[in-house]
């Protein structure tokens, strides 16, 4: 094979792969704009009404706010637990460090649907904890492994002697952490926040059983909506969500080279 035909073959393969991976999004964007009351592709006529309708559906609004709150506060809580844990795992020769690591990573290994069911049955039902609180805790736990992993890896290259230097210059241990460690892992913490936010926001299985009257995360609400209605608004909403994720990732990549933390 000569070089130019090899190059061509290269791009053909990549083109097909990328079409398979990305093409569906383009289809969704257009399907959401179809001027029909049912899902159609290619779109029959173009309209923005489905895109606008999304914002007027009451349950979408409520579930969007719930998902937003879960993603923001769940991730913040996970960072509150995860940053000290990541720090301790990196800095101290802890007995049972491996156990701590495994336990904290457990939420990644255990499929979300099982966690949701277990929490419903053994937390919500017996203790009367509200579903919202259970959701919050489940999302926190779900994001925790990512928080620990991403923050750990950004802390990994931070040498301990920097903190010792700070202490010898008069810092308390806590000041050494806030003045020296934190400024240097800021990027990692931000990356962990974004990754946690996206993970939590897109999460379905954990929230599947943890829903009640008026308490539904957005993806669950979409699943419920598409079972009864077949109009293009779910396509429109999907497209909007895709844009939101892309915008977040794009800004993150520009600001801090997000991809090196993932």
């Amino acid at each position: 094979m000569n070089t130019s035909s090899r190059l061509l073959a290269n791009w053909v393969i990549l083109g097909l792969t990328l079409t398979f991976l990305i093409g569906p999004f383009l289809i969704i964007i257009l399907a959401g704009a179809s001027d029909t009351s049912y899902l159609a592709f290619p779109p029959e006529g173009l309209t923005l009404r489905w895109y606008l309708k999304v914002f007027t559906v009451e349950s979408f609004r409520a579930s969007f706010l719930l998902s937003m709150a879960l993603a923001v506060f769940g991730t913040l809580a996970a960072l509150l637990l995860g940053v000290p844990a990541a720090y301790a795992l990196n800095r101290y020769a802890l007995p049972g460090a491996e156990t701590v690591r495994t336990v904290v990573a457990a939420p990644i290994i255990v499929p979300g649907i099982i966690v949701g069911l277990a929490l419903l049955r053994y937390l919500v039902v017996p203790t009367g904890v509200t579903v919202t609180l259970a959701l919050f805790m489940a999302h926190t736990a779900l994001v925790l492994p990512y928080a620990v992993r991403v923050v750990s890896s950004s802390m990994h290259n931070l040498r301990a002697d920097m903190e010792e230097a700070a202490v010898l210059l008069g810092c308390s241990r806590f000041q050494a952490f806030t003045k020296v460690v934190l400024p240097n892992i800021r990027g990692g913490v931000l990356a962990a926040f974004i990754l946690g936010f996206v993970t939590s926001f897109n999460q379905v299985p954990v929230s599947l059983f943890l829903s009640g009257p008026g308490v539904r995360t957005l993806p669950i609400d979409m699943l419920a909506y598409m079972e009864i209605t077949f109009d293009p608004s779910v396509a429109a909403l999907s497209a909007l969500l895709a844009f939101m994720s892309l915008a977040i990732v794009f800004v993150a990549e520009r600001l801090l080279g997000f991809s090196r933390y993932v």
């Binding site: 844990a85 802890l94 460090a97 255990v110 736990a141």
Partner: peptide, 27 residues
């Protein structure tokens, strides 16, 4: 300086306990 095990555990345990109570026990 970083050999104070109790300090390290105090930092790592909240996350571990949280995961245990919310994950390992119910599951």
């Amino acid at each position: 300086m970083f050999r104070n095990t109790r300090e390290g555990l105090a930092l790592a345990l909240p996350a571990a306990i949280f995961s245990t109570l919310l994950f390992l026990v119910p599951v």
